[in-house]
């Protein structure tokens, strides 16, 4: 990660207060890049809710006995892009499912992703699912960059899954010249 500046690193339970505080911080962090900030915010929320709902490592964190998933999110300034990395433990039996979902997502262009999102969203609600089940698709639509996934065995039942995605920074709106990104 040479030349990449970490501006956010969090490890722990992803409860609603953390989601709110970090989300709000990201939303207004770069006033010159409102579009990228909006994307940072919405992608962070989806990644964080994934961890909160689906991490195999959980902790009862407050009096309400609600379980919050534990995981890590790091956000880096990578020059022309922001880089978001999320990591958490998952049950081994769903690893292949997540990886193949991401491989499918990465094969699609913007219109293909919108189509897939509509198909999945229109399918019946899943019992016990709080989410729309379209978080990863929405991340891909918002990020406009491929998702990277890496899994490492952790113990007999679990693997550590790492998702990486990028967001292009706003191109100077005032400048008439086309940006010369290499």
């Amino acid at each position: 990660m040479e030349g990449h500046k970490v501006f956010l690193y969090y490890k722990g339970p992803f409860d609603e207060i953390i989601l709110n505080k970090i989300g709000t911080y990201l939303r207004y962090k770069f006033p010159a890049s409102p579009r990228a900030c909006g994307k940072l915010f919405s992608i962070f929320i989806e990644l964080a809710q994934n961890i909160s709902y689906y991490s195999a490592e959980t902790e009862i964190y407050d009096d309400s006995e609600k379980r919050h998933g534990i995981g890590t999110i790091a956000i880096l300034d990578a020059g022309e892009k922001f880089k978001l990395i999320s990591g958490n433990l998952v049950e081994n039996d769903i690893v292949d499912d997540i990886v193949s979902k991401i491989e499918k997502i990465n094969q699609l262009d913007h219109e293909g992703l919108r189509q897939l999102k509509k198909e999945v969203r229109s399918s019946p609600r899943k019992e016990g699912h709080k989410g729309g089940n379209i978080g990863l698709i929405q991340i891909a639509i918002k990020s406009e960059n491929p998702l990277e996934v890496e899994t490492k065995p952790y113990d007999a039942q679990h693997s550590f899954i790492t998702l990486t995605t990028y967001i292009n920074k706003d191109i100077e709106e005032t400048s008439e010249t086309t940006s010369s990104h290499a």
Partner: peptide, 12 residues
Amino acid sequence: TYFNTSSSRAIL
């Protein structure tokens, strides 16, 4: 002005 994906399904 903004909604998350779980709201998006409920709005549908």
